[in-house]
Write a protein that binds this DNA or RNA. Sequence first.
DNA 1: TTGCTCCTCACGTCACGTGAGGTGGC
DNA 2: TTGCTCCTCACGTCACGTGAGGTGGC
Lengths: 278, 278
Amino acid sequence: VFSIGEFSRITGLTVKTLRFYHEQGLLVPSCVDEGSGYRYYDPSKIETARVIAFLRGLDFPLDEIGRILRDAGDDADLLDVMERRRGEILATIRRQREVVRSLDELLSREKEARRLMANATFEVGETVVSPLRIAGVRMRGKYSQCGEGFARIGRRFGRHIAGKPMMLHHEAEYRDEDADYEACMPVRAGEAADGITVRELPGGRCVTLMHKGPYDDMGRSYAKILGYIRQKGYEVVLPTREVYLKGPGMIFRGNPRNYLTEIQMLVRDEGSQAVLKG
Amino acid sequence: VFSIGEFSRITGLTVKTLRFYHEQGLLVPSCVDEGSGYRYYDPSKIETARVIAFLRGLDFPLDEIGRILRDAGDDADLLDVMERRRGEILATIRRQREVVRSLDELLSREKEARRLMANATFEVGETVVSPLRIAGVRMRGKYSQCGEGFARIGRRFGRHIAGKPMMLHHEAEYRDEDADYEACMPVRAGEAADGITVRELPGGRCVTLMHKGPYDDMGRSYAKILGYIRQKGYEVVLPTREVYLKGPGMIFRGNPRNYLTEIQMLVRDEGSQAVLKG
DNA sequence: TTGCTCCTCACGTCACGTGAGGTGGC
DNA sequence: TTGCTCCTCACGTCACGTGAGGTGGC
């Protein structure tokens, strides 16, 4: 026979655990000294201990293990129990996998944002943009209310969304109140519905400037890009665009000082219908 | 502002959970009525609630969520936290997979045993067996001590074992005490070591009988198979074999009445060195 | 009065682990 | 005496859920 300490070393179960299993009636010592209360286990208990450890490894609760041990005689439904457990484990694996997938998305978005941040130049530049299919909600009021528009598009288009949120400014001037703007997002597919229009934004020659920092600080960046356009003698084609490369996110709320917004202004080199003369 | 019930419906968190998060300082109501103690939440709290729910979905403990919420400003190490979590989840998935694998083995063994049981005929038959590579421990004493021999082979050969445990009887007579027998198991590979021999059992013509039930009940089956051999005029070649198709298992201890043992006796049709004359 | 929403307080869950305080024999 | 092994008893863990008992306004 073994003392509890020896038995613990043999089975790999802690002394505390063995006492607990005794208390629960799961693994009762072969004899208990009346005077000292010492527990003694004989070798036949080793297998029971192993079975319990194995089933605990399958995350069976102790009371179920007790039941299994008790009617080990008819193993008829033991097969069922095991197969049910197997199914449950597979189900949790599937859930975990889903979780990992959503984490991966989160992480890749965040890393992309950091990459952008690292490579961004904060000087005015010129480029050519391609036509872009978007879903948009035309809004009137304060810019700060645009969130509602994005939310509506998000709910409606879900996983058809194919790029960063943008805002279109349909007026040349900046207004604090009663502005005419459009919250929109690039989409792969989906149809117009309740106030959301789907259409193609034209491509073309484009002057860009990256703005880093909070949104109410964009005046300086606008002054800078407009100065450049005036100097070059370009004409701005409305609407102008803001692309929100990194803003307050779901988890990584981030610091407004790290927000990253690209201002895009399509331009014509010359022409008569200039809306805003450079 | 929303009452706790309304806020619960909006966020999907239970009222109890919301109160608990308040108590923990995780999600504090926007205001609390002094007189009634009623909690009121304004809409800005919805996002916090969603973030908490999301992180709980990743199984982050509450205190860590609290920390994350508090220093959401600098998201520097948030990436690390998330990636660590990702790694942990992947690790548990791997563990779970291992568990499923071992369950599958258990289940397939058990199903195999049941299939055997269903198809077994309990009549004497004749077959031809192939040579079989085995690891064996020669023992002397009581049959019931064979378990120790199997255990030694199991420890030594582990996953090289390629079949059901067997016992070889090196004497023609059955003895209760001081029997000369050999516990052995089919093996794919592995070398002889400390008392375990590895060799090839010869194949050949073989008379078989399936015995169902407890081991101390095998006398009748032996009488039956020996009766058959005598009637046919065969000679038995020693050692005779018992194959333990289903006995007390690790988990599915089963009922001794369902134990399944195949008795195999290699025979010669005629010859002079007969050990046991039919 | 009934029904609804809110409150607090105490206790339960699950499988142990921690730690205090004590014993008995070398 | 010190060190070791054993004991019991009470409490902690984690994220809530349960239930009792009560309030306040329609």
